[in-house]
Design a protein around this nucleic acid. Structure first.
Lengths: 159, 159
DNA sequence: CTGAAAAGTTAAGACAGATTAAATATTAAG
DNA sequence: CTTAATATTTAATCTGTCTTAACTTTTCAG
């Protein structure tokens, strides 16, 4: 049986290492893309939950709808978002990732995947198997505890 | 043998889930603490590598030293950093986390640890053991590939 | 139809953070 | 000692983001 002392110890070490690296890379990503934290947060929100309205973004970022509107406008001009009228309620706008915006999000996730993959190259096949099993278990646990963890599908539901 | 297709698939799913959650929490952390991305990045840099000069921070953030100086000034005023004269070179300043700053960093890491720990509560003891083994292997791989991944010790080197 | 509520945009003002250029203080070279 | 280089700060300016307030358009309740 693995003592819970050891367990938390391992968890903390991994988290420290992972966060240290992620922070560096993420900071560089933001500088390279010229995006601010609220902008990135909005893009991720759209990546994970799909299209939504200006007010949804504002609520998510905890800012006024005016602020969200302005920020979205800049992202639209940069070609990362698409804004269209909601056919069911013409007061509302539908905000969604543009193909370029989606690509940006995918690339930022891919960078993290690449790092993890690189780590495993220095590990034995047995350790790699262990990692697959562990991450698989963690993923399903995360989705069980918070179904919104799953990324939103890209294309429309072509029935 | 675990096929590499399966391996990358598992890696990507975990990364998506993990990043989605981290992004939400991290964004909230920044809003709650009132910090910007460059500020957080600077604080992490100091947490992981310890005290350094203004120019080091500037290089790390890829901004001018004037920008770093101004940003550090705000963080000093907020009580998160301490700035002192370098006794060996009185042109230079030594920037370090204040106790409050260190506490803030530790708390942000702790939040991530808690989330991971919470995930494991819905898993079996066997899965938990697998996770310990996997994260342990990943941590050592990360440190082997990039020794700077390890966090800097808090106290001075006594002895 | 009329008025209230809702969704978003626009405008004006404040602040953070970036840049460049100039200034200060200290160190290093000759 | 003088000059050049280094480390940081200050000033002026620009951009981005936030807020509040005012405004438009559309929806919904009577």
């Amino acid at each position: 049986m693995t003592g819970s002392f050891h367990f938390n110890d391992v968890l903390r070490q991994w988290t420290e290492v992972f966060m240290g690296r992620s922070m560096r890379d993420f900071s560089a990503f933001m500088r390279n893309s010229g995006l601010s934290m609220p902008q990135v947060s909005a893009l991720y929100r759209l990546y994970y939950r799909g299209q939504c309205g200006v007010t949804d973004i504002a609520d998510h970022l905890d800012v006024s709808s005016a602020a969200a509107s302005q920020m979205i406008e800049r992202l639209v001009q940069q070609g990362l978002l698409e804004r269209s009228e909601d056919p069911n309620d013409r007061r509302a706008k539908q905000i969604a990732l543009s193909p370029a915006g989606r690509e940006l999000m995918e690339e930022s996730i891919e960078a993290r995947v690449r790092w993890m993959a690189e780590l495993t190259t220095v590990l034995s096949p047995e350790e790699q198997d262990t990692i697959v099993a562990a991450l698989d278990a963690l993923t399903s646990a995360a989705i069980r505890l918070d179904p919104y963890s799953q990324a939103h599908e890209a294309g429309a539901a072509t029935a």
